[in-house]
Write a protein that binds this DNA or RNA. Structure first.
Lengths: 344, 344
DNA sequence: TAGACCCGTCGAACCGGTTCGACCCTCAAC
DNA sequence: GTTGAGGGTCGAACCGGTTCGACGGGTCTA
């Protein structure tokens, strides 16, 4: 493998000159630049990443800390990853992926060893044990997810509270008076999945304000249990005319459940979910839903991270906490409840 | 950040001695080793990855080249990735993930720059343009998937031909005489997805041998089109008593389709799929299937790759092409056809 | 008692880049 | 004609590890 020394020799210049010619960090005569480029081309020169990292203390690699939990929905996880990798590549960074169950240890290792210039954390919990490590690290970090303490990091998440309000208000406006909200299983909350209760609390509040009865339930995150759960919830609340889903497995299972009960949406039941458009297309889900935009969140996190890495943020730029506004995608699964006599 | 020089000074020894004490590459007195370890601990020393890579020409990183294609099933892709990352971590390697659409360019970049010690390729096509680059590279490579030319790389894949035979023979043995095989869409073949015709050709052959009529069809890889496709195939071949699925979207859509047709499996139709057990559980698919074992394939690829990286393979060890034997997981969706009077 | 050998340690070189300061040369200004 | 500024190039140092050869001192053997 050719080194910059080989290139310099072939071009008849000093190593430093070859470096300047290739990086453009100092002025070089047109003629020398051309010779050096030519030599580099002919020798197939590619700078050694380790050497460059050592000299510049920059690796052009971003760490991505994910956790593949059995109750996280795989398609959504892949969308986060894709948003992050694509954006990183566009900005000239590679991705070091860790799915280590010991996220804390993995984070410490890759930051202390200077393998990465910055880090993106997925699956952020309310009390995330990786955050103290990240704050101690020399590199900046960006989160997808909303922890209890946001100091020292940039935070991006869907506005789950607004999402809860939007869902309830949308159905309330149509005339619904009794709703069921199916959330992720409780152990997701216990693990620190704050987004579950953030959406739920806001929904409860909005229901109270709008004079709507809201039954909150936790459903399993996998089939076939979630199908049985849905049947049980519908059995328990026969007068409910609307269903809110903050649980992707529930959304995937619902078509079959409705079929089995000989119900249609929105004829018998109005349905609003919370999942990504990609997910809706893959599984052909016909339900209106709040777009959860995983790829967009990944993109935003990387963009901000790179701005910090490259020092494009002004001195003392405060850390950002940015919530993506939930957008309701209408797929026609909501309507006024049966027997509702009001004008549209 | 503490360097090995700081550690050496704190322990009162030469840098080289500190290095030997920590890496164990030369004998060091117990007393010095203890002092060095103590100093390293107190200073929170972690070796600089770039410097180590430069000195040893080993990065302890494995490149993972995936391609997130819209017609690849996300859950399966995530399982491959998980098999690779978990195994790599167990063996002491980190993963550099690329999902660049320009796989060729990405591969050249990460190998030439010596960022990685080896490479795992996913989504390998019949004629894969990454393979010439990989063969030129200094680092070894392992593939998940079966290309036309396997020279210079280790290859791991499901034995799709055996899978096709097993599916057909299983149903033939039960007495079925007319079957439909639903494959991935044709553009997957055009892209080089050889596994589609490998399974199909073997199935056709086995059908001929067993005196079975086999209708081969290509279905869409996404909903809702695949649902319509399935209806059309069943309409076109009303006498078919068995359905073979080499198309994950078709498997996911089938429960609804059968419901709509008021059919049950195996009562009215015997069904055999080809997908991972994980996929079956997530989507609660009740169909017997050939286990496609994505995590296992990822694991095998990394294991072999690491053996090559670490030179544990004997001189001139030939490259391996290893097919995982397909295993039929019985979930009770096959039975003798209706009206079959033979003894079991 | 001399020589051979082994163990533990050290200093120096090296991996392959980047970057700093110095130097030379040319050209413009006074 | 001298001085100053600035563009272009070079050599040397540096980043932080690893590794090679040499060396001192102790033990074992002849």
């Amino acid at each position: 493998m050719a080194t910059i020394g080989d290139v310099a020799r072939a071009a008849g210049v000093a190593r430093s000159t070859a470096s300047y010619a290739l990086t453009g960090k100092r002025a070089v005569s047109d003629e020398v630049r051309a010779r050096v480029r030519q030599a580099a081309m002919e020798l197939g020169y590619t700078p050694n990443a380790g050497a460059r990292a050592l000299a510049t203390s920059r690796s052009n690699v971003i760490g991505l800390l994910a956790q593949f939990l059995p109750d996280e929905f795989a398609p959504a996880m892949l969308q986060y990853i894709q948003g992050v990798t694509d954006t990183a590549r566009d900005l000239g960074y590679d991705i070091l992926l860790s799915s280590d169950a010991d996220g804390r240890g993995a984070l410490k290792r890759i930051t202390d060893s200077r393998m990465v210039d910055g880090v993106v954390l997925l699956n952020v919990a309310e009390q995330d044990d990786r955050l103290p490590v990240l704050r101690d690290a020399a590199q900046p970090g960006a989160l997808v997810g909303f922890p209890g303490d946001c100091t020292g990091v940039d935070v991006f998440d869907l506005d789950f509270e607004e999402a809860g309000r939007v869902m309830v208000e949308h159905l309330a406006r149509l005339g619904h008076r009794e709703l069921i909200l199916v959330s992720q299983p409780e152990h997701v909350i216990e693990r620190g999945g704050a987004y579950v209760w953030r959406l739920q609390n806001a929904a409860v509040e909005a229901a109270a304000v709008n004079g709507v009865v809201l039954h909150t339930r936790y459903g399993s995150s996998s089939q076939p249990q979630i199908g049985r759960d849905l049947h049980a919830f519908l059995d328990a609340h026969p007068n409910a005319t609307g269903l809110l889903l903050n649980n992707e497995a529930a959304a995937a299972a619902l078509p079959t459940v409705l079929h089995e009960r000989h119900l249609t949406a929105p004829g018998d039941l109005s349905v609003v979910g919370r999942y990504s458009d990609e997910f809706a297309r893959t599984f052909s889900l016909p339900y209106s839903s709040i777009e959860s935009a995983p790829d967009r969140l990944g993109r935003m996190a990387v963009r901000q991270l790179v701005r910090r890495i490259e020092g494009q943020v002004p001195e003392n730029d405060p850390y950002v906490v940015r919530f993506v506004a939930p957008e309701l995608v209408d797929r026609g699964s909501t309507a006024p409840p049966l027997g509702d006599a009001r004008e549209p």
